[in-house]
Computed example of a mutant assay.
Amino acid sequence: MNYRLFQREDFDDLYAIEEICFQPPQRFTPRYMRQIIASQDSATWIAEHNGHMAGFAIVEWTQQIAGILAYIATIEVLPTLRHHGIGAELLRRIEGSANAEGASQIWLHVDTENTAAIQLYERSGYHSRGRADHYYARNRPAAIYLKHLV
């Protein structure tokens, strides 16, 4: 497995994974996806398997009164390649990018029914910080997780 930062020519392959992993209305639009990837306050990591994109992760950060706070926009891995540690490594990579930008904390929303993702976050040191009812389309709730970065 090869891990690297996003390059502009990766977008079509990246968005194809978005279309596989999420159905409307949960899917990001291409315009929104391009916007967050292009931001100077974000990092997008790519996982490649045998020369083909296997997954990606996007983290954003913002300056708050208490310091820089990072947010995981998404982590996506092709269904056929899940459970091989790709998501965990992408998570480590985006945490590293957030840490390099001086973020003291990183947080995320996750569908309360996505037990595999919740287990990954909890194994990686994230702690539940509540719930957001009606966060996702069709009134699906999200769990909120937070991790303090070193």
Rank of each mutant, 00 (worst) to 15 (best):
M1K: 15
L5Y: 10
R8W: 06
E9S: 10
D12V: 10
D13T: 04
L14Q: 04
A16C: 13
I17T: 12
C21T: 05
C21G: 12
Q23V: 13
P25V: 05
P30G: 07
Y32W: 15
Q35V: 01
I37S: 01
I37E: 00
A38M: 05
A38C: 09
Q40I: 07
Q40L: 12
S42P: 00
A43G: 06
T44R: 01
W45A: 07
W45K: 02
I46F: 02
E48V: 04
E48S: 10
G51N: 07
H52T: 14
F56P: 00
E60K: 01
I65W: 15
A66K: 14
L69Q: 07
Y71I: 00
Y71Q: 10
I72R: 00
E76R: 09
P79T: 05
P79L: 04
T80R: 08
T80F: 04
H83M: 03
H84P: 06
L90D: 01
E95H: 06
G96Q: 09
A98D: 12
E101W: 02
G102F: 03
Q105L: 14
I106N: 00
W107G: 02
T112Q: 12
E113M: 07
T115S: 13
A116E: 15
A117N: 03
A117G: 08
L120I: 05
G125K: 06
Y126P: 02
Y126C: 03
H127V: 05
R129V: 12
A132I: 15
R138H: 04
N139G: 08
R140M: 11
P141L: 05
A142N: 08
Y145W: 08
Y145H: 06
L146N: 11
L146H: 14
L146C: 09
K147V: 13
H148N: 12
